[in-house]
């Protein structure tokens, strides 16, 4: 089927198999490999992107369901040190990553959380990131980063 999805502000029209998952559309059709596949079972959150302003797990959304919608990936936030989103910058400043595998999903989930709740508390951050697993950091610096970004544009879309 033909889908037309606005990805990072750019309209992308492609013919895909009906069963194509959004994460494969992003990674393989568009070559946007910043979005990772982790568990592939809706648990780990590594594939989190923002669709119509809300975080979703792109391994559990069909490209067909995203047809006509707006999708934002980590590449849409920033791809170099000079154009980092405040949430990316806060992750860097607070050493909120080690191996980095969970980071794109973690950042997208965090942006969505802070977008919905700019005055977010530490407890709300911890609860709100329950759908994103990090096996390196113990979460402490991730929570610090999200709280730091919350006051400085971390929820901007």
């Amino acid at each position: 089927m033909k889908v037309s999805i606005e990805v990072n502000g750019k309209k992308e029209e492609h013919d895909v198999e009906d069963r194509t998952l959004l994460v494969f559309f992003l990674r393989e059709t568009l070559g946007l490999t910043g979005t990772n596949i982790g568990c592939d079972t809706t648990n780990c959150g590594a594939c989190t992107v923002i669709m119509n302003g809300e975080s979703v797990k792109s391994c559990t959304v069909l490209a067909a369901q995203a047809d006509g919608q707006k999708v934002l990936t980590i590449e849409g936030l920033g791809t170099s040190q000079d154009d980092m989103h405040p949430m990316q910058e806060a992750f860097r400043q607070n050493h909120a990553l080690q191996c980095g595998y969970c980071t794109p999903g973690m950042v997208m989930a965090a942006v969505s959380l802070v977008h919905d709740n700019p005055n977010i508390t530490e407890a709300e951050v911890r609860e709100g990131l329950e759908g994103n697993l990090c096996r390196c950091t113990g979460y402490h610096n991730i929570v610090k980063a999200v709280l730091a970004a919350a006051g400085s544009g971390g929820g901007d879309l």
């Binding site: 989190t48 975080s55 797990k57 989930a109 969505s112 709100g128 329950e130 759908g131 994103n132």
Partner: peptide
Amino acid sequence: VGDPQVRHR
């Protein structure tokens, strides 16, 4: 139910 991403869908 689930987590915020799941509850969005």
